[in-house]
């Protein structure tokens, strides 16, 4: 069984949910405090949502300097799965593991509701188990959720069906060139069971778990 690290920064708040949803599909998911510097026992890593370090200064701007981030970077460079959800996506951009930045939503209001996203790239660790073109219902929960990428190099993995927050190219998720580092703004773990209203997010988490099992340690 693969082991996935769920990084906990002071101010993270979705770590328990991610752990719950990963364990529900048979993965081993363990919390890793942001001061840890060694992720060698893990096959993949998730940076969960929340408000790391209070999101003070700028979302993710302090978190990128947390001790754990050098190990996260090493993992990304080794080709292992690295997924950032919501605040985790913001941190990956601040750490330059993904291009662009996340800025305030176009309407300058926090948005918490399920939205539809179309999976447009299935060659990544988060989307390999999904049919190309599939439309998933996933809950969005962010204020700084608008992705902008002046370089125009972002590899879009999922697009909002409707333009909900002004994201460039309607990007809801993007990946690095190798497809092993993915940032996604909506929360797959929040739609991982029917009783929560949708289980579409489970497909994404299953892709992640499969990817951690594929890649040799």
């Amino acid at each position: 069984m693969s082991r996935i690290a769920v990084v906990v920064f002071p101010g993270s708040n979705c770590e328990l949910d991610v752990q719950w949803a990963l364990r529900a599909i048979g993965a081993e998911a363990e919390m890793v405090w942001h001061r840890e510097t060694d992720l060698s026992g893990f096959d993949g890593v998730v940076l969960p949502g929340g408000f790391a370090h209070g999101d003070y200064l700028r979302t993710g701007a302090i978190a990128r300097f947390s001790p754990v981030m050098s190990a996260v970077t090493a993992m990304a460079e080794a080709g292992r799965p690295v997924v950032g959800i919501c605040n985790g996506f913001q941190i990956l951009c601040e750490a330059h593991l993904l291009p662009g930045a996340l800025i305030a939503n176009r309407d300058l209001r926090f948005i918490c509701r399920p939205v539809e996203v179309e999976i447009v790239d299935t060659a990544t660790v988060l989307t390999a188990s999904v049919e190309p073109g599939a439309v998933l219902t996933l809950p969005l929960n962010s204020y700084e959720g608008q992705h902008t990428d002046p370089s125009g190099t972002a590899r879009v993995v999922a697009r909002y069906v409707e333009d909900v927050n002004g994201s460039q190219d309607r990007a809801a998720a993007i990946a690095n060139e190798a497809g092993n580092v993915v940032g996604i703004m909506p929360h797959p773990e929040r739609s991982s069971e029917d009783v929560l209203g949708s289980s579409d997010g489970r497909l994404l988490l299953e892709s992640l778990v499969a990817a951690t099992e594929r890649i040799p340690a």
Binding site: N13, C14, W20, F110, C112, N141, E193, L196
Partner: peptide
């Protein structure tokens, strides 16, 4: 009241059914 409650995180902890 969606204008109000969609500004609140109402789903965290995966308890809200």
């Amino acid at each position: 009241a969606a204008w109000v409650y969609e500004q609140y995180d109402h789903m965290l902890f995966l308890n809200t059914i």
